[in-house]
Design a protein around this nucleic acid. Sequence first.
DNA 1: GTCTATATCGTGATAGAC
DNA 2: GTCTATCACGATATAGAC
Lengths: 219, 219
Amino acid sequence: MTSRSTPEGPAAPRRRGRPSRAGTPDGPDARTRILRAARTEFAERGYDRTSMRSVARAASVDAALVHHYFGSKDGVFAAAVELSFEPALVVPQILGGPVEGVGERMARYFISVWENPVSRAPLLAIVRSALTHEAAAEVLRGFLLHKLLERIAAELDVPDPTFRAELAASHMVGIAILRYVVRAEPLASADPERIIALVAPSIQSYLARGAADGPAPAD
Amino acid sequence: MTSRSTPEGPAAPRRRGRPSRAGTPDGPDARTRILRAARTEFAERGYDRTSMRSVARAASVDAALVHHYFGSKDGVFAAAVELSFEPALVVPQILGGPVEGVGERMARYFISVWENPVSRAPLLAIVRSALTHEAAAEVLRGFLLHKLLERIAAELDVPDPTFRAELAASHMVGIAILRYVVRAEPLASADPERIIALVAPSIQSYLARGAADGPAPAD
DNA sequence: GTCTATATCGTGATAGAC
DNA sequence: GTCTATCACGATATAGAC
C-alpha cells in the first residue's frame, strides 16, 4: 500500500528500442496506460467490480502484463490512487488568510478539486472503494486524518479543532458522494457557485469561532 | 426493485407441517432468517462482496433455497433493504415544531436512526451498495428525494427548499459514512450528543431562514 | 418445500514460450 | 517485454431427486 512511489509522474525515460504499440506510434508506454486505465476503472466501478482483465482491456494491454508490472490487484490499486494534488501545500494558505472568509475559501477549494476530472478520478476511486474494501478505507482514513484534518486543526483557533475539522470534512464528503457518485438531484446539477455560497457559512461555523460555544457564524 | 412488499413484517402464518429445522424448534421460518441474514451481509459487505452462498450460510439454509424464495440476488437485495422506519411519519412533526429548534431535532432524529442497529442495518446496506451498484443507487436516490427531501421541502419557508434540504442531507450522509462506515476518528468514537450539538446549527441554517440570504443562524 | 448436483462463467494469479 | 495457456477457485443460476 505504501511501497509504490511511481504514480507515473517522472515521465518515462524508457523508450529504449521495442515497446512500440499498434496505432499509437509514440503514445505513453504500457505502464502509464495501465495506471491511467486503472484509475478510471476504479473510479467508475469501485474496487470489487474492477478486474485486472478489465483494466488490461481498457489499457489495450495483455492481462498478464498488469500482473507483471504491479504484482497484484492491490498493487495496481495502490499505484493508481496516488493523489495528483497535495493538500499540505494549499491548506495552510487557505486557513492563513482572513478568518471571515475561511469557510468560503475551503469550500471553494474542495469543490474545485472535485470539479476537475484529473483530481477527481483518484478521489472517486478511493471513495467508491473505501466502503467495501478495507485497504481503500485505510487510504481514505489516512488521507483524511494526516493530509487534511491534522493540517487544518493545526491552524484553527477553536476547541476540539480536529473534531470540528472532521465535521466540516464530513459535510464535503457528503456533498461529493451525493453529487459526484450517486448523482442525486438537485445537487448533482447545481451550479458550483451556489453550493459554495450556501455551504461556506456551515464550514465557517466549524473552522472559526463565531459567538459563544462556537457554532453560529455571525452576520 | 419495487415489486416485493414482504419485508418479513406480517409475521408468518406459515408453519404448516414440515418446515422444522435443526436446533431451533420454533424459530423464525427460513424466509425470515434469509432476509435477516441478507440484511446483515449486505450491510457489512455491500452488494458486490455479498454472495447468495454467504447469505445462505449465515441463515443456516441451503443456497438453492435463497434462489427459490427470491429468484435472484437482486431480488434478495430488494427485499432485504425495505426500510424498517418511515420518515414520512416523523419528518413533518419534526419540522412542524418551533423553528428555532428544527436543526437540533432533525440532527437528533437522524443520529438516533443511525445509532439504532435495527434501523441502521438496511441503511448501511443501501449506502455500502449504492456507490457501486446501480440498483442500490436508485433506491438511495428515491429514498432521499421522495421520502426525505420532498417531505422536508414542503414544510420549509426558505428559497430553494429542496436544494437546501439536500445540502442538509448531504451533511448527515457524510457524517454517517465517516462515522459508521469508514469509522474515521475522532468522529467514529465521538459522543452522539456532541455531534448533535455542533451539527444542529448547520442544519438549522439550511432549513430555516436566518438573517439575509439564509445561512447564518443567530445566537 | 428442501437439498444435491451440476452447468457455465469470470476471477486473480502463475508458468513458460518467444 | 509481451503474450498464450492454464490452474484453482468461487460466483449465479438451474434441473431434478426426495
